[in-house]
């Protein structure tokens, strides 16, 4: 199939972006208009971060930017130059969310799993800020994460259970830092 030659658009030329992704220094060449989520998935082959609505409504693309949860569809990869990005792959490998993952599994807090990476990243941030959030606070924190399978109840259950377990473990260690 032949196609007409396209006019060269200089602003679409790739620029070098350097990031620390999941603890590893990476460099990739992307056009400025490429979103962070497309860069992570397409160039770095980290497909655990999902592309849902591409407008910040569904929460499927959450990653950590310098330690805070952000929508990877709402920033361009070039903006992340020099930043630290942690995706669901990195958080999984490090083990920091192993208890959340196990509890989601145990309570059937996922069916298709499309929303799960975003749910976990948001839940992880919530529990790092509030040690024992109320169910209402959990629902509030998840208000920007859409799940079309579960009806949320099991997700809230799982997060509440992990919060309880972590608080009990902290108490057992005599840790009153939170």
């Amino acid at each position: 199939m032949s196609s007409a030659p396209t006019e060269l658009d200089e602003s679409d030329e790739a620029v070098r972006v350097r990031m620390v992704v999941n603890g590893r220094k990476v460099a990739c060449d992307v056009a400025p208009r490429v979103t962070l989520v497309d860069c992570l998935r397409g160039q770095l082959e980290l497909t655990g971060t999902h592309v849902g609505c591409e407008m910040g409504a569904c929460g499927a693309c959450l990653v950590q930017l310098d330690g805070r949860a952000v929508h990877a569809c709402l920033m361009f990869a070039v903006q992340a130059d020099g930043a630290r990005i942690d995706t669901i792959e990195g958080l999984s490998e490090s083990g920091v969310i192993a208890d959340l993952q196990a509890e989601f599994h145990r309570r059937n807090a996922l069916q298709c799993g499309f929303c799960t990476p975003g749910m976990l990243i948001n839940a992880h941030e919530l529990l790092s800020q509030v040690s024992r959030p109320s169910r209402e606070a959990i629902r509030d924190a998840l208000s920007g994460n859409f799940c079309r399978c579960t009806g949320y109840e099991a997700i809230v259950d799982a997060i509440a259970a992990v919060a309880e377990a972590r608080a009990a473990a902290a108490q057992g260690r005599g840790d009153s830092s939170r």
Binding site: R68, A69, V70, E125, L126, G144, N145
Partner: peptide
């Protein structure tokens, strides 16, 4: 502030 969008939007 708590009424502005969702937590991840508020981070940015």
């Amino acid at each position: 502030a708590p009424f502005v969008a969702h937590p991840a939007i508020r981070n940015r």
